[in-house]
């Protein structure tokens, strides 16, 4: 079950690398949030505990409901153009993503020989981290950067569940809070910048340097 979900997660990454609509990014974020929530809920089907359900519940609220709605609201409010404006061709980007994912899967396979880990979730999480970074590197729009950062964050979550030991609850909650705050700040920053600059491209942010 875990493996199936992880592969689904991985497929969503491929979709991310070919789509050029901002709206699709938000949808994918939502899907990824749902996948992660299910992944977190699975262990509780066998032995249920009220205490442990806090994280999936928070996850559902923050990642599936609140953040996508907030991003959509920012897009609507600021009237951001719907295209993502890549800096390299989509096909090249896809090739890069595929190469990265292949390398990561091979590397994880190698690594699993020496360390106990679930190869597929581990590699998917790692890929999500890499692709999150790629999205930030090769896209111009600030709002897309936020999405890239969220993908990266999702990757870290998946990564955490795949490692044999469990992260303490406090740390996971902390990460969630971290994401929440970052998105919030980004929204505020975008609102501010919109009153100063025309576009929402990071190249303009250089001018804000002191």
């Amino acid at each position: 079950m875990e493996n199936v979900l992880s592969i689904l997660f991985c497929l969503s990454l491929f979709y991310l690398s070919v789509t050029s609509r901002v709206k699709a990014y938000v949808t994918v974020l939502r899907v990824q949030g749902i996948i992660l929530t299910i992944l977190l809920v699975i262990p509780f089907l066998s032995h249920f505990s009220v205490y442990g359900i806090i994280i999936p519940a928070t996850m559902l609220i923050v990642k599936v409901i609140y953040i996508p709605r907030y991003i959509n609201k920012v897009i609507l409010d600021l009237d951001i153009k719907r295209r993502i404006e890549p800096t390299i061709q989509q096909m090249v980007f896809l090739a890069l993503v595929i190469a990265t994912i292949v390398i990561i899967f091979f590397a994880s396979q190698l690594l699993s020989k020496s360390t106990p880990l679930n190869v597929i979730p581990f590699a998917s999480g790692f890929s999500a981290i890499a692709i999150g970074i790629y999205i930030i590197m090769f896209r111009k729009k600030l709002i897309v950067h936020v999405c890239g950062f969220l993908v990266l964050e999702n990757g870290i979550f998946l990564f955490g569940t795949s490692v044999a030991f469990e992260l303490p609850m406090l740390i996971e909650l902390g990460t969630l809070l971290d994401v929440f705050v970052v998105v919030f700040l980004m929204g505020i920053a975008l609102n501010r910048i919109s009153s100063t600059f025309e576009g929402f491209e990071v190249a303009h942010l250089g001018r804000l340097k002191d």
């Binding site: 800096t87 890499a130 970074i133 930030i136 590197m137 090769f138 190249a203 942010l205 340097k209």
Partner: peptide, 12 residues
């Protein structure tokens, strides 16, 4: 660099 994309590239 002031551009965040370069910084992220360095991280990678």
């Amino acid at each position: 660099q002031t551009d965040i994309r370069y910084s992220v590239a360095f991280i990678l």
